[in-house]
């Protein structure tokens, strides 16, 4: 028998590899998880002295009850106006004594800047729906982001989310802090 030089036809190999490739493309996910990032307060040490009380004027209380109604600073609020209210509170343009104090802080790249001492306290009931909670969180975050955008445009000529320089981002973050406190849970009652 004559010795043949066997040559396997590798033409279909590419097709097989293509099939595998398409299979992986279909079954795997490339979606990037996104959401609202928050940092929880550290657990309270029972032996630690109670923290100094925060002045009434510096706290912006947003409460969502079990029927998803919003109470903003003791008055019935609305999700559509919450953003403006929050901005007004944090800005305190007229230096109203009922709105939060400001302090001057020397910030790198920004110089002397007024930083509001305002804190947003978000409280909810056990019966509050998650969707409403996220909607409110979103509005509060939007208010702060808008303030950051305004400041960034004024100082650097660009929107905050368009900034690329880490130092500038840090400066803006310091000037307009994301001061949202998710309160200790309390049972307001009514809900489940």
């Amino acid at each position: 028998m004559a010795r043949m030089n066997p040559e396997i036809n590798a033409g279909s190999m590419a097709d097989i590899a293509f099939l595998l490739l398409i299979f992986f493309l279909v079954t795997t996910t490339m979606d990037v998880d996104s959401g609202i990032l928050r940092v929880l307060p550290p657990p309270i040490d029972p032996n630690a002295p109670p923290p100094p009380p925060v002045r009434e004027r510096n706290v912006f209380v947003v409460l969502i009850d079990y029927q998803d109604r919003i109470l903003v600073e003791g008055q019935l609020g609305n999700i559509n106006t919450l953003r403006e209210q929050t901005k007004e509170f944090l800005l305190n343009r007229t230096n109203d004594p009922n709105l939060p104090e400001k302090r001057m802080v020397e910030i790198e790249n920004l110089g002397e800047t007024e930083v509001s001492r305002g804190i947003i306290s978000l409280q909810n009931d056990r019966g509050t729906s998650y969707e409403m909670y996220i909607a409110v969180q979103n509005e509060l975050a939007a208010a702060i982001n808008e303030l950051r955008n305004d400041l960034s445009r004024e100082k650097f000529g660009k929107r905050f989310d368009e900034l690329t320089d880490e130092d500038l981002i840090k400066a803006i973050r310091e000037a307009v802090p994301m001061a949202i406190s998710e309160a200790e849970p309390k049972d307001i009652g009514g809900g489940r």
Binding site: D33, G35, L37, R38, V39, L40, P41, I134
Partner: peptide, 8 residues
Amino acid sequence: ALKINYST
């Protein structure tokens, strides 16, 4: 575990 993300 203090860093959380409300996935939306």
